[in-house]
Nucleic acid binder design. Structure first.
Ligand SMILES: [Mn+2]
Ligand SMILES: [Mn+2]
Ligand SMILES: [Zn+2]
Ligand SMILES: [Zn+2]
Lengths: 142, 142
DNA sequence: GACATTCATTAGAATTCTTCTAAATTAGCT
DNA sequence: AGCTAATTTAGAAGAATTCTAATGAATGTC
């Protein structure tokens, strides 16, 4: 494989930069995740997509990889629904709409939601992150 | 049983008002939930507490009841952690700190977090609710 | 390139949380 | 008391995720 010229945003470069060994499985998953704009995926979804491409990646590896990517800062873990874990390829500052009825996440630009006041963390603790989730239901009018 | 004078905040009154039959199990659960200030409980926690009081309530009933209470507006469902569902006895306007390391929720008064701007819902949808979760980690200093 | 070492992948079992099923019990009504 | 619908229950089933321990692959050294 020719690896002379590797952009940092290409799958291989991404893995290298994150200090992750570029295995066949990780490259396949990185391609699915990062080559089509921002996405919110579940492990199962990703497994199906990879399978559709003909690649075989075990569920254990899907989960391992998603967690590795998350620890490396390539993904962000989003919790909005019980019993369903989303991984977000958009790691920048932003929030979410959640369409309950479709189990679908939609990004809200970080600057669109402004917190006029943020509470102080209780003693001995520090703020790790702030999630704003705007839950949506079908509009009755319409 | 004398039911001539029942406050609406007593377990029996609460169930009546919500149109729920006051069974032995529901009364026991309502007592645990609503007689000690605002709480964030999991099904398992509640099962253990009820068991400690000598009452036997099946897991199926715990879940059924928590969902009934939630539909009736007596509880609020809080999603902050994958694979762990909290039920909140505080149904008023407020947000949450979440102490990841202890799996513990702390209320933030509704007015303490002010959203300076809230995005419009996408066409065909309406805002159902807005959750603000401030995730906490141990403070490094200290 | 061969070898050694470390890390990654995998199938399947196991775990955890929650829901379902279908039978037995109970509350509310007359 | 007797009727009916709602409720409870044990245990099975389901769904998502993690674990295990054996196999395979990437990387560094000679
Ligand atoms: Mn859902
Ligand atoms: Mn947790
Ligand atoms: Zn996002
Ligand atoms: Zn609360």
């Amino acid at each position: 494989m020719d690896v002379t010229h590797v952009s940092e945003t290409e799958p291989l470069g991404r893995l290298r930069k994150a200090g992750l060994r570029p295995t066949r499985q990780r490259l396949a998953l990185a391609r699915m995740l990062f080559s089509q704009g921002d996405r919110h995926v579940t492990a199962e979804q990703l497994r199906d997509e990879v399978a559709a491409e003909g690649a075989r990646v075990s569920m254990a590896t899907i989960y391992n990889t998603l967690h590795h990517f998350t620890r490396a800062g390539l993904l962000r873990h989003v919790v909005v629904d019980a019993g369903r874990t989303y991984f977000d390829t958009n790691t920048g500052h932003h929030h979410h709409f959640y369409v309950e009825s479709e189990h679908r996440l939609i990004d809200i630009d970080g600057d669109t939601v402004r917190l006029a006041s943020v509470p102080d963390a209780p003693p001995g603790r520090a703020i790790d992150s702030i999630d704003v989730i705007v839950r949506l239901k079908p509009d009755i009018r319409a």
